[in-house]
């Protein structure tokens, strides 16, 4: 039996959909018995959502007002206090998991396996390096807890319909006061969330300005798609960083990805290569994006995109 503790990500009220993908990864470990940990100010609803996910044995909830904002310095010691009997402590490879899990690993005296894309054996995993230019097989040493983050784009979420037991856990780790949550500015919009959207339309530097990025938003609205951007477009200030797709931004796997005015540098491609269908629209027929696109269209985006938006009426 392999005891797995999975740290659930949430926004204070709802479970993040990446949790189902993390469970899919965890259940590919032979003999996995999966407990999901929910740390929240009010954990009830979140824990109930986690309990519905297939393959979950138990949901462990710990409530404390200090958990608001999900601060690593506060959560990591609590996770360590819970980790005792587990063979694996896992989290999503999102900004939440990337922040917390290495702190957990260090407190446990181990290294972390970052961005697990497949489980190859009891302690053997594959993960991407060099912006996905290479895939390395890694083996965690025997006799220590395996701490890892999961590249959620590599997995399809498990189904629901389970009713796992939910248990409250009292933890005794100190809550440090040297780190304080102040607040969040989330770019709330009615558009589907980039990370979980079935369709994503993304723009690159070729858009030329923040105003022109409107073309991307209009097409996305027509397709009910999330909106992404290349690092170049973020660097140029056209859109905020949370829209960045690629090595240093989001790693996503929508059913349909439409790359507009994006050349297709490896750092960007690594963020989309698990997408179902990739469409590329670019005026440079030599652009590397066409080498990985399922459907390519060479043309000026300022003509093609409005025409496409209209054609979808």
């Amino acid at each position: 039996m392999a005891k797995v503790l999975l740290i659930a990500e949430h926004d204070g009220t709802s479970l993040n959909p990446n949790t189902g993908k993390c469970i899919a990864c965890a259940s590919s470990i032979a003999g996995a018995e999966i407990d999901v940990a929910v740390f929240a100010e009010f954990a009830g609803d979140i824990a109930a959502q986690a309990a519905e996910l297939e393959s979950v044995s138990r949901v462990l909830k710990s409530e404390n007002a200090a958990y608001r904002g999900g601060l690593a310095a506060i959560l990591a010691p609590q996770i360590v206090a819970m980790a005792g009997d587990y063979d694996y402590v896992l989290g999503p490879s999102t900004t939440f998991g990337k922040d917390i899990m290495p702190r957990v690993a260090a407190l446990l005296g181990v290294n972390q396996v970052s961005d697990v894309m497949s489980v190859e054996g009891e302690r053997t995993f594959k993960r991407p390096i060099y912006a996905g230019s290479a895939v390395v097989t890694v083996e965690a040493p025997a006799g220590v807890t395996v701490v890892g983050t999961i590249r959620t784009a590599s997995y399809r979420a498990v189904g629901t319909g389970n009713s796992a037991a939910v248990e409250s856990v009292d933890l005794s780790a100190d809550v440090p006061d040297h780190t304080r949550y102040v607040g969040s500015e989330t770019g709330k919009s009615d558009r589907p969330d980039l990370q979980s959207a079935a369709r994503v339309v993304a723009g690159g530097r070729a858009l030329g300005s923040e105003e022109n990025f409107d073309l991307i938003f209009k097409l996305a609205d027509k397709l009910e798609a999330g909106v992404g951007a290349s690092r170049a477009a973020v660097d140029a200030g056209y859109v905020p960083n949370e829209m960045q797709v690629g090595q240093t931004g989001r790693i996503i796997a929508p059913d349909l990805y439409i790359a507009i005015g994006i050349s297709g540098a490896i750092q960007h491609v690594t963020g989309i290569k698990d997408a179902g269908t990739i469409v590329a629209i670019n005026k440079d027929e030599e652009a590397p994006i066409f080498e990985i696109a399922d459907i390519g269209l060479v043309g000026d985006l300022f003509n093609v995109v409005p025409e496409l938006t209209e054609a979808l009426d």
């Binding site: 290294n111 230019s133 390395v136 097989t137 690594t270 290569k273 066409f290 399922d294």
Partner: peptide
């Protein structure tokens, strides 16, 4: 407790698709 790197491989390639 270092994590051993046992093998390296190129990423699975996506096939070039069609042009319209």
């Amino acid at each position: 407790p270092a994590i051993a790197e046992t093998a390296f491989e190129p990423p699975a390639a996506r096939e070039r698709g069609i042009m319209v």
